[in-house]
Amino acid sequence: MRYLQLQIRFPPEERHPMHQFLTEQDSIQRVYLRHWNFSNPEYVATLLHIVGNIESEREEYLAALEATESIQEFDVTLIDDRSFYVYVRESAQGFAGRLRGLLTDTELLIVPPVEYGTESEMLFEIAGEQDALKSLVANLSDHLSVSVNRLGEYDAFREPHVTALTDRQEEVLETARKLGYYEIPRRTSVREIADELNCSKSTAANHLRKAESRLVALYEERSRLSYQSEDS
Rank of each mutant, 00 (worst) to 15 (best):
P17H: 11
S145C: 11
R168F: 02
S213K: 13
G128D: 15
L103G: 07
R9L: 09
T175M: 03
L4K: 13
V111Y: 03
L165D: 03
V172T: 12
D105K: 14
R187F: 00
L22T: 14
S56L: 11
T104D: 09
D81Y: 02
D81Q: 06
Y181N: 10
R150M: 07
I184K: 09
S83I: 03
A194Y: 01
D195G: 01
E66Q: 14
P11M: 01
D155E: 13
R82C: 00
I110V: 12
P12M: 01
M122I: 06
P11R: 09
T77K: 14
Q7L: 07
N139F: 08
L62H: 04
L108N: 06
I184T: 08
E69F: 12
R209G: 10
G128M: 00
S147N: 11
L99E: 08
T46W: 13
M1S: 12
D231C: 08
Q130T: 01
L65N: 02
E212K: 07
R187S: 03
F38N: 14
D105T: 15
Y116P: 06
T46S: 10
L123D: 04
E171R: 01
Q169C: 03
Q130W: 10
R100H: 10
F95I: 13
A132T: 07
T175W: 01
I8K: 10
Q7E: 10
A194D: 03
E57H: 07
L136Q: 12
S202V: 02
V216P: 02
R186D: 02
D131R: 01
E221G: 06
E115G: 15
A194C: 02
R100D: 06
Q29V: 12
K178N: 06
Y182F: 12
L6H: 06
H35M: 13
I71H: 02
P41H: 00
F84K: 01
A96L: 01
H143P: 09
L197Q: 00
A45P: 08
T106M: 05
V114A: 13
T68N: 09
S56G: 11
A67S: 08
F84L: 07
T46R: 12
S189W: 01
Q130L: 15
I79N: 15
E220H: 04
L48H: 11
R30C: 09
G97Q: 11
L151V: 14
E212L: 05
T166P: 05
H143M: 10
A96I: 03
V190I: 12
V190S: 03
T118D: 10
V88N: 00
